[in-house]
Write a protein that binds this DNA or RNA. Structure first.
Lengths: 202, 202
DNA sequence: TGCTAATCTTGGCATCGTCAAGTTAAGATA
DNA sequence: TATCTTAACTTGACGATGCCAAGATTAGCA
């Protein structure tokens, strides 16, 4: 026993996810096929179907992993920053964009059109909710500290999110030149600070 | 002569583009295949290759059409608005987001990953430059009117663009609920106004 | 009128997602 | 321990896709 390639893999699901992430990060979303994932995991083309209903389910699982990482990065950064709610907001926006620039293909996958309807993927919906909830919490404390004036919290959160989302996407699409990372981070930090100063006037 | 389906189409390129736009708007980007476009145009599967080098070239041509429409919509809206540079900026941001919400699949295609490197598609690069140039011009006149304080014009333009881009994408991805159009437009208008008021402080 | 080059077609190949039916082994039951 | 159930995995096949290669048709110009 213990020969090469046993019939039962042991933990194929995890291995498939790992392979999928490697493919996405290495060759982009377009290279992510079920067959490629199976091949890289040393398994037949149909094996993944016993762990993911179809290709979309695999993509959704990869996206969920991405949201988990994004959330983890944000949480970690907030622990290292102070308690100032304004600085926390700016910092988490910067971390967000940093994540986008560091994982361009993964981020694009996380917001790809095929996953727009998340009702079919409850795990993905749950994973994606964590960053949103985090932002909402930060905005709430900022509002409590009087930084938002009379501005609706939900609107404020959406605007900050949209700005980070937009800057991150423009960065990885090449609109911020080569080496967009410092420029993108400076832009979000600047814009979030600007918005907060604008809101505090109301 | 003048029978059905002549061997030479006459203006296949235009017909293919039209079919492609119909497919994108009707069934989404994922349904846009060369064969489907050919089928809808009543022509063999290989015919498109005499007008577009490969699938990416077709997609690029569709995207260019999209940028032309976006630019046209913005220009038209600006003619109907006054000369106030601040209002013009807000208005064009609203028109931008309105376009995104009205043409979700087309907009996604315009910024799809496969077109990120536009050096291969000079026509697309040129078409995409028009909206950017328009925005830069509006920002320049706003700066001339003293609305930007000491803020870098390029940064200001990028932030406005990113905000519209981000809000539009969040809207068509379902994060603004069903019927996102009024909400999205209100959000951009609000946010651009906020940013301008924040900038004018510096 | 005849030549050339552009336009369009047919046929074929590799790859993809997925259905159907079979094989292997892990784990419960007796 | 022997058997049975069931999950995990495989092989084979089908239709669809992007694209290569080679042939057919016709427009436009000499």
């Amino acid at each position: 026993m213990e020969g090469l390639a046993p019939y039962h893999h042991g933990d194929l699901r995890a291995a498939l996810l790992r392979s999928a992430l490697e493919i996405v990060e290495g060759d982009g979303v377009s290279a992510l096929s079920l067959r490629a994932v199976a091949r890289r995991s040393g398994v037949s083309a149909m094996a993944p179907y016993h762990h993911f209903r179809d290709r979309a389910a695999l993509v959704a699982a990869v996206a969920a992993k991405g949201f988990e990482r994004l959330h983890a990065a944000t949480v970690e950064a907030l622990q290292n920053s102070g308690a100032d709610s304004l600085k926390s907001l700016v910092a988490s926006a910067c971390v967000y964009v940093d994540f986008v620039v560091a994982n361009p293909a993964l981020y694009r996958l996380m917001y790809s059109a095929e996953l727009a309807d998340r009702t079919s993927f409850p795990d993905l919906a749950e994973a994606a909710a964590a960053p949103s909830a985090n932002l909402a919490r930060l905005v709430a404390t900022a509002a409590g500290a009087g930084y938002l004036g009379s501005v609706d919290r939900r609107s404020a959160a959406l605007q900050i999110w949209a700005m980070a989302h937009g800057i991150g996407l423009l960065a990885i699409d090449g609109y911020l030149g080569a080496d967009p990372r410092p420029r993108a981070i400076a832009l979000v930090g600047d814009s979030v600070a600007t918005m907060l100063s604008g809101w505090s006037l109301r």
